[in-house]
Simulated scan of single mutants.
Amino acid sequence: MRDLITSIDSTRLGFFKSILDEAELACFIRNETTSQLTNIFIGPLQPTLCLVNDADYERASELLRPHQSTEASFAEEWLCPACKESNPASFEVCWKCQTAKNE
């Protein structure tokens, strides 16, 4: 087993998993439902897309590369100006109230 991508954006991980599933690369999302929990010794348990077979790492990375934005992966979450909900950096509108992101 090998970790491929860790992200707080579970939608993004689900999208990446669907790409790998279509390519018949065995994978799963670890900590998918525990992202809000924190362990005092290891920190937050963030969702991570994992490959079952280490040998698939290069192929999986190649398949996902066109779908990854370096700008979005380094950007931080933003708070909606209307409802104050936290949103992933890649979202242009709030997932909860559809208010546009302030630039």
Rank of each mutant, 00 (worst) to 15 (best):
F15K: 08
E32Q: 12
E32T: 00
I5A: 05
L4R: 06
A23F: 04
E22S: 10
E76I: 09
A75P: 04
R30T: 02
A82K: 09
C27S: 14
N87Q: 10
I29V: 15
M1T: 05
K96T: 08
D3S: 15
I40E: 06
L4A: 04
L64F: 10
C83R: 01
P66D: 08
A55Q: 13
E85Y: 07
L63F: 06
A89M: 09
S90D: 14
W95V: 13
F91K: 14
T6Q: 12
S35G: 14
D9C: 10
C97A: 00
R59T: 15
W78D: 05
S90C: 15
P88N: 03
D21E: 11
C27D: 03
E24W: 00
C83A: 03
I42Q: 09
E103N: 07
V93Q: 14
D9P: 08
T6H: 01
F41E: 15
S18I: 01
I42R: 12
P66A: 10
Q36A: 04
P88Q: 07
S10K: 15
F91L: 13
W78A: 06
N31E: 08
Q36D: 06
F91G: 00
S61D: 05
E24I: 00
S35Q: 15
Q46T: 15
L51F: 02
E32A: 12
D3T: 04
A72C: 07
R59K: 15
E103K: 02
P47H: 07
D9N: 15
F91P: 01
T38C: 09
N39G: 02
T34K: 09
A75L: 13
E22D: 11
T33Q: 14
A82V: 02
A23G: 04
I19R: 07
L64M: 07
A55G: 02
N102K: 11
K96C: 05
T48M: 10
F16P: 00
E24H: 03
T33W: 11
E103W: 01
N31W: 03
W95A: 15
K101M: 04
C80H: 04
T70R: 11
R30S: 07
C50I: 01
W78K: 05
H67K: 08
N53A: 11
A75W: 05
A60W: 09
S18N: 02
E62P: 00
T70G: 01
A26G: 05
N53Y: 10
D56S: 11
L25S: 05
T38F: 12
A72L: 12
V52E: 15
F16S: 01
R30M: 08
T38A: 11
S35E: 13
F41A: 15
R59I: 13
C97D: 06
C27W: 03
N39K: 07
